[in-house]
Amino acid sequence: MTQDYSINMLKSGLKVIIFNQPCIIQNSKFVKPGKGQAFARVKFKSILSGKIVETTFKSTDRLKKANVHDIKSIYLYNDHKLWYFINSITFEEISISKKILNSKRFFLTPQSKCLLTIWKNNTIAIVLENFVSLIVVKTTPALQKKSLNSSGIKLATLSTGISIKVPEFIKVNDLIKIDTRTCSYISRL
Rank of each mutant, 00 (worst) to 15 (best):
T2K: 12
T2S: 13
T2L: 12
Q3G: 01
Q3N: 08
D4M: 02
D4I: 01
Y5T: 01
N8A: 03
L10G: 00
K11W: 00
G13L: 02
F19R: 09
F19N: 12
F19G: 03
Q21P: 03
P22A: 07
Q26S: 05
K29W: 02
K29I: 10
K29M: 04
F30D: 08
V31Q: 05
K32A: 08
P33W: 08
G34C: 08
A38V: 10
F39W: 05
F39N: 07
R41W: 02
V42I: 08
V42W: 02
K43R: 15
F44M: 01
F44G: 00
K45G: 08
I47Q: 12
I47S: 10
I47T: 08
S49H: 06
K51I: 07
I52N: 10
I52D: 10
T55G: 06
T55H: 07
F57I: 09
K58W: 02
K58T: 07
S59N: 13
D61C: 06
L63K: 00
K64N: 13
A66T: 06
V68K: 08
V68P: 08
V68F: 11
H69C: 00
H69N: 11
D70N: 11
I71G: 02
I71E: 06
K72D: 14
K72G: 06
K72E: 14
K72M: 09
S73D: 07
Y75W: 07
L76R: 00
Y77H: 07
N78V: 02
D79V: 01
H80A: 11
K81D: 15
L82R: 01
Y84Q: 05
I86H: 03
N87G: 06
I89R: 04
F91H: 12
F91M: 10
I94T: 07
S95L: 07
I96M: 06
S97T: 14
K99H: 09
L101K: 03
L101I: 06
L101S: 06
S103E: 14
S103R: 06
K104F: 10
K104L: 09
F106C: 01
F106T: 01
L108V: 01
L108G: 00
Q111L: 04
K113E: 15
C114W: 04
C114R: 02
L116E: 09
T117D: 09
I118Q: 11
W119N: 11
N121T: 08
T123W: 02
A125P: 01
I126L: 00
I126M: 03
V127W: 02
L128N: 08
E129C: 06
F131E: 15
V132N: 06
S133E: 15
I135A: 09
L143T: 09
K145H: 09
K146T: 14
L148V: 04
L148E: 10
N149I: 13
S150C: 11
G152L: 07
A156Q: 14
A156R: 11
T157M: 15
L158H: 11
L158I: 14
S159Q: 15
T160P: 12
G161Q: 13
G161I: 13
I162V: 04
S163P: 14
S163D: 15
V166F: 05
P167C: 00
E168Q: 12
E168H: 05
E168D: 12
E168G: 01
F169S: 11
F169E: 13
I170M: 07
V172R: 14
N173V: 08
N173I: 05
I176Y: 02
R181L: 13
T182G: 09
C183W: 11
S184G: 09
I186E: 12
I186R: 05
S187L: 01
L189Y: 09
